[in-house]
Simulated assay, not measured.
Amino acid sequence: MKVFAFGASGSDTSINQKLAVFAANKLPCSTPIELSTLEADDFDLPLFTSQKEQELEQSTGSKAHPKAQALLDKIQAADVVIVSFAEHNGNYSAAFKNLFDWASRIEQKIFQNKPTLLLSTSPGGRGGKSALEIAEKSLPRFGAAVVGSLSIPSFHEAFNENMSMLRNDELSYRMDELLKTLSSHAS
């Protein structure tokens, strides 16, 4: 199964990246998992404006920023998508929103109707829940076939020492059930 999992952050130490990869590695699957991700550098592109888009087109002949196209290519190649949202002041991170804005200019249905699991975490007690709620409402309009969502509060206390399992039995059970559902929707 081809899995595209990433933390919607931009930080090279993103706990949401760690959560997305954790979830991908726990997917129940009878075949080996081919995992692709995003790194912090993948979010490093100019702040989207129509002027920047015009400048890009003038200099390259295309409005498609290569990093935005790479995001779309990774989604296209995947059987399933796992996104874990960092929360910045109650919303998506600016890094993700900017990449999302560039990509939506190439393909409005960014998620291309792929089965998508939405996650979030934070060091705090709400676990990035505000950003997750925004994603649950908005991403289906952009082609995300959302199969479920889960917020993991208090990230640093939520996992065992080597991050191989969740300490909270209820959260662990909910994660396992969501991963079974996601796996069952793989093409």
Rank of each mutant, 00 (worst) to 15 (best):
K67R: 15
F43T: 02
F48G: 02
A23F: 05
C29L: 05
Q58I: 10
D42H: 14
K18D: 07
I33L: 12
A40I: 05
A24I: 03
E53V: 13
E55H: 06
P46F: 07
L35E: 07
L19Y: 02
E53D: 06
S30Q: 15
K26G: 03
K67L: 14
F22W: 09
L38G: 02
K18P: 00
F22P: 10
G10F: 07
N16C: 09
S50R: 13
L45S: 10
D12T: 15
N16P: 06
Q58S: 14
A20G: 10
S9N: 12
Q17L: 11
P46M: 12
T49Y: 01
E57V: 02
D44W: 09
E55C: 02
C29G: 01
A23R: 08
S9D: 08
S50V: 13
F48P: 01
T31F: 01
I33G: 00
Q58L: 14
A70H: 08
A24V: 05
Q51P: 00
V21I: 15
Q69D: 08
A8Y: 02
Q58P: 06
L47R: 10
F22C: 04
I15Q: 04
A23H: 09
H65W: 08
A64K: 15
S62H: 13
A64W: 07
A40P: 13
I33Y: 01
I15W: 01
E39G: 10
L45H: 12
L56Q: 11
S9W: 04
F22A: 01
T49M: 03
K67P: 00
L35T: 13
L71C: 05
S59Q: 14
S50H: 08
L38Q: 04
T13L: 03
S62C: 06
A8M: 10
C29M: 11
L27H: 12
S62W: 10
T31G: 00
L35Y: 03
T37Q: 03
D12E: 14
K18V: 03
T60M: 08
H65Y: 07
G7W: 02
L71P: 04
Q51R: 07
L47M: 15
L38I: 06
S30F: 01
L45E: 07
L71R: 11
L27D: 07
A68S: 07
S50W: 05
T60R: 14
K63G: 02
Q17T: 15
D44I: 12
L47K: 08
S30E: 12
Q51M: 14
K67G: 03
S36Y: 00
A64H: 15
P32T: 06
D44M: 14
Q69W: 00
K63V: 06
F22M: 07
N25G: 06
F43L: 05
A40V: 03
D41V: 14
S62D: 11
C29W: 00
L71M: 09
S36H: 10
T60E: 06
L35N: 12
D41G: 09
H65E: 08
L47I: 13
L19A: 04
T60V: 10
S9A: 11
P32K: 11
S62R: 15
S36N: 11
L71V: 09
L47T: 13
D42R: 15
A24W: 02
K67N: 09
A40T: 09
K67T: 08
T60P: 04
L71E: 04
Q51A: 12
G10A: 14
